[in-house]
Design a protein around this nucleic acid. Structure first.
Lengths: 239, 239
DNA sequence: GCTAGTTTCAAACAAGTGTTTGAAAAACGT
DNA sequence: ACGTTTTTCAAACACTTGTTTGAAACTAGC
């Protein structure tokens, strides 16, 4: 008991000080889920890192799955709200003219960037967590994200369809899928960069630089002319 | 012994039946790892599905991690060999002229397509497993894939650098990273498609169609002109 | 100061984990 | 046919998992 008394008296002087139990669990869970994934992260690991009792996780969040969803909701919900608001702003500013792909992509990326920049540490962690959650096979994660993204995706598909009127709607859906994939994969895989390019360590974690290079790449892909049937078998001929 | 004699005589006629224990474990593990991920798949689940004894997994593969690596190696190794061979063929055919981005992408995609087409079922499963493994945070998986991809990546980076001589090497590395990301994400996330587009179920699993649409998209991104400094802050201005 | 409601805590629960063991069975070489 | 190696099997091992429990500590409201 002497130990716990010491810890309590020391804690306010510390850096990350004195959030309530619920926030401390969310913060620790965010980092650990990002680092190890959902299945490989135990509640004991989380509650120990958060310096709270094991039972507190179930008391405040119900179950491990609900805790994971709470971690995602806390930042994903505002970010997607931002995205839709930004898209609305652009659309009203453009009047009845269609937006360009660049502008639409900006509306997707800027809220993500804001998250990566604003929070001192949590933001970057969250983006990586989100990218990895997008590739997680667990059904409850996929269903949760589907529901969470549904409205935003519908808005952006409509915007891209207006920006690319010469493309069939189905092709627009495909390309939007590629954009979302490249974005989430890029945000998730800082480690994978080391395989492909050898950058300075300071640059590797620079999400801003990353997205500034990704956005034009994707815009060019979106604008590319539709490959017709005769072009198609140029791609995958038998060798 | 009578049973095994019968089974052996039947094997050539039947489609799937009666592989040896090692292959049965690999097949079951491939499917289950793909479906649930590494951590969420237990050895008991695998050995039960393979109809072998639990201890057989450790006997033949040593540990769960080594089993996972064996599942990946079995098909990834030949696929990457194919990719490099194909690239070599194209390069010798082109003489000292640089290859186009389309041709280089073909050399990446065709071996993946061959895998998806040839094996009746295992091929598609494996591509999805591979895409998911690429996003898995487990260190042993990331290290394994880094090592497994290193040579192929180096070859393709050099090829793209020759195809895009106007781009800085660093930009080429980024774009190669985006290509790999979009490819692995696309192969991994059949489920995610349902969020973005509502296709006929038969089309959703058609990897060939998927890659035929992805390849031109990526080629356009690769060929896009480098965004210069003045264009750059067009993208992410403060709102 | 006392009560009612909320939050914390140590301990236990039942179930599942990867791995090991030692004996039985099968397969193989000669 | 026999001795040796390889493979299978049921059982157990030591440990971790998410969740629950019931008492203790704390925090208002009056």
């Amino acid at each position: 008991m002497a130990i716990s008394a010491i810890q309590k008296s020391v804690r306010p002087a510390d850096a990350v000080v004195e959030l309530d139990t619920k926030s401390r669990i969310l913060d620790a869970a965010e980092e650990l889920f990002m680092e190890h994934g959902f299945e490989a992260t135990s509640l004991r690991l989380i509650t120990t890192a958060a310096a709270v009792n094991l039972a507190a996780a179930n008391y405040h969040f119900g179950s491990k799955e609900e805790l994971f969803q709470a971690v995602l909701t806390r930042r994903l919900d505002p970010m997607n709200q931002d995205r839709m608001q930004l898209l609305t702003n652009y659309e009203t500013a453009a009047g009845n003219k269609a937006l360009t792909c660049e502008v639409i992509i900006s509306a997707m990326f800027i809220p993500a960037l804001k998250l990566a920049r604003d929070q001192s540490q949590g933001g970057k962690n969250f983006l990586r967590l989100l990218g990895r959650a997008y590739a997680d096979p667990a059904p409850f994660i996929r269903e949760f994200l589907s529901h969470q993204y549904a409205e935003m995706i519908a808005r952006y598909r409509a915007a891209f369809a207006r920006a690319l009127p010469h493309l069939p709607r189905e092709e627009v859906s495909w390309r939007l899928h590629f954009v979302m994939g490249a974005l989430s994969y890029t945000l998730a895989g800082t480690d994978a960069l080391k395989v492909i390019a050898q950058f300075h360590p300071t640059e590797v974690n620079n999400d801003e630089l990353l997205l500034k290079r990704l956005a034009p790449f994707l815009a060019a892909g979106l604008r590319s002319p539709m490959a017709n049937a005769t072009d198609a078998h140029q791609w995958f001929q038998e060798t």
